[in-house]
Simulated assay, not measured.
Amino acid sequence: MAKRKASKNLRRVLWATVIAAALFLGYLFFLWLQVKEPTFIRYKEFGISIPTQYEIHGIDVSRYQSTIAWQEVKKMRVKNVQLGFAFIKATEGTGLVDPYFKRNWKKAKEAGVVRGAYHFFYPKKDGKSQAQNFFENVKLESGDLPPVLDIERGWNMPVDKLQNEVQAWLDAMEQAYGVKPIIYTYVTFYEKYLKGKFDDYPLWIAHYYQPDNPRISRPWHFWQHSEEGHVNGIIAKVDFNVFSGDSAAFRALLVP
């Protein structure tokens, strides 16, 4: 009887110790939460959570955003977040031009927003002809971002054929503007079609709902982290992006 009672008391002591340890660890975790700097903060004004560890933020737009009041875009500032750049859709395929491009291109510069132009790429069409479409419609100036190749569809093309057409566009752009173009795509597409061939080009990667950074093994320059943002001066939702480096690295990327 005495042994059973001693064993019962021991179990009570052990349980009490476990509970006390759990409460202590919970308290430590609570204190850690109070001092840990959050990496994603939701801003009511922008309507989305924004990664706070990056200092340079921007958007990308096309005809889907309709007419944009660029001065309002530039003036919007919420705490330490202000939009410093915008990628603007220019061309598509061998002959299409975004109907809002000329206006967006002109008004963004007037508002003091660093601008970049992108081309939506058709892998089954000649890369040089698509480059000519871009070149005929986009006049990059000093201080603009490099030209961007937006490639999101493979259309079941052989990888080597797709890569050849992509390389043709990139080579033509570098020759025309004197800067290395940026590649825009999403993670799985890059891994399937582009990895190992274009790793020395600046990368603009789309990967949503990630807490800190896109899950890709190679370095990146721009990260499109949301497509649900709201900005003063734009009626429709808009894509949000961050730049990976500081202001000096950003300036070094621009067209000289």
Results as ranks from 00 to 15, higher is better:
residue 89 K to R: 12
residue 93 G to L: 02
residue 93 G to M: 02
residue 94 T to I: 12
residue 96 L to P: 01
residue 96 L to C: 09
residue 96 L to F: 14
residue 96 L to Q: 12
residue 98 D to N: 05
residue 99 P to R: 10
residue 99 P to A: 07
residue 100 Y to I: 05
residue 101 F to C: 02
residue 103 R to V: 10
residue 105 W to N: 08
residue 106 K to D: 09
residue 106 K to H: 11
residue 107 K to S: 10
residue 108 A to G: 03
residue 109 K to R: 15
residue 110 E to S: 11
residue 111 A to Y: 04
residue 111 A to I: 07
residue 113 V to D: 06
residue 114 V to C: 08
residue 117 A to Q: 00
residue 123 P to V: 01
residue 124 K to D: 06
residue 125 K to V: 09
residue 126 D to V: 09
residue 126 D to N: 15
residue 126 D to C: 09
residue 126 D to G: 07
residue 126 D to A: 06
residue 127 G to V: 09
residue 129 S to T: 13
residue 131 A to T: 04
residue 131 A to K: 03
residue 133 N to T: 08
residue 134 F to Y: 14
residue 138 V to Y: 04
residue 138 V to R: 04
residue 140 L to W: 02
residue 141 E to D: 11
residue 142 S to F: 05
residue 145 L to M: 14
residue 145 L to K: 04
residue 146 P to L: 04
residue 147 P to F: 03
residue 148 V to P: 00
residue 149 L to D: 00
residue 149 L to G: 02
residue 149 L to A: 10
residue 150 D to N: 06
residue 150 D to W: 03
residue 151 I to W: 05
residue 154 G to A: 11
residue 154 G to K: 09
residue 156 N to M: 08
residue 157 M to L: 15
residue 157 M to V: 06
residue 158 P to D: 05
residue 160 D to I: 10
residue 160 D to H: 13
residue 162 L to S: 11
residue 164 N to F: 10
residue 164 N to M: 12
residue 165 E to I: 11
residue 168 A to H: 10
residue 169 W to I: 13
residue 171 D to R: 12
residue 171 D to M: 10
residue 172 A to M: 04
residue 172 A to Y: 01
residue 173 M to C: 08
residue 174 E to D: 10
residue 175 Q to N: 15
residue 176 A to H: 15
residue 177 Y to E: 11
residue 178 G to K: 03
residue 180 K to N: 00
residue 182 I to F: 01
residue 185 T to E: 11
residue 185 T to P: 01
residue 186 Y to M: 05
residue 186 Y to W: 13
residue 187 V to D: 07
residue 188 T to G: 12
residue 188 T to H: 15
residue 189 F to E: 05
residue 190 Y to M: 10
residue 191 E to V: 10
residue 192 K to V: 08
residue 192 K to D: 15
residue 194 L to V: 05
residue 194 L to S: 12
residue 195 K to N: 12
residue 196 G to Y: 14
residue 196 G to S: 12
residue 197 K to C: 06
residue 197 K to T: 09
residue 199 D to K: 14
residue 200 D to R: 15
